[in-house]
Amino acid sequence: MQEFINQFFDVGFMLDHFDEVLEGFWITLQIFIFAGIISLIWGLVLALMRQLPGGATKPLRFLTIAYIDVFRAIPLLLFIVLIGTGIPSLEFLPEWLRLPQWLGKPDTFWLGTFALVVVYGAYMAEVYRAGIEAVPGGQMEAARSLGMNHGQAMKNVIVPQAIRKIPAPMLNELNTLMKDTTLVSAIGLNEVLQVASDVQSETFNSSALTLGALMFLVILLPLARIVDRLIARNRGQVTRGSHMEVA
């Protein structure tokens, strides 16, 4: 038992390595914030392209659907490795794109963020789509009959209502995204997993990894409670507003 505790829960060891693990976790948080915000925006763009009306936009709709399907089917770890190792080898790209070092962050940070955004944008698009499709069709008709074009109706009527319907699934996606940022360690970014497993391979003590896990818990456990509360609140809203949903 003592051996087990020493291996995974050595508090003194954790305190010795706390600063470097926290530094790694800070990188993790930053990549999460960048990838989270950008994929929330990119996902909405994809969802809106998917909902474009008319015949002229059919090719764009088709491409959007293909994008969403493809990137939800590719393993994220594989894609991160593909981007992280492939892009820097493309000699014809300008260096600021091939090896981006913006804001003093290494290229692995930005290539990892890019890969996460590409894939999570597709997931987010599906969540937005569920929200958009949950808005009753009469809303679009009412907006159009008042003279709004498709874009005005989306902006003023459909999307504001769609977003109110999806905070819980959206937070679930963000939860998964945050955990998946650890996959960027595969291309050598010194985020929390990389730092903690370096410690482990030097000392054969796993407590730094446990410490990293605990840091995730500090952020993500409250998030789970928030999701529960949002789901409960939404259920309440649906019940109260049910007279609106007849037919």
Binding site: Q139, E141, S145, L146, M148, Q161, M244, V246
Partner: peptide, 30 residues
């Protein structure tokens, strides 16, 4: 659509907007 107004069986008011905003949205935005 700027000459023909329509009223629906299911009202189709915009639930995220106040009564006043429901009425002002189209004149302002369109």
């Amino acid at each position: 659509r700027q000459r023909v107004g329509m009223v629906f069986q299911q009202f189709n008011l915009f639930p995220h907007k106040s009564v006043l905003e429901n009425v002002t949205m189209a004149p302002v935005k369109v």
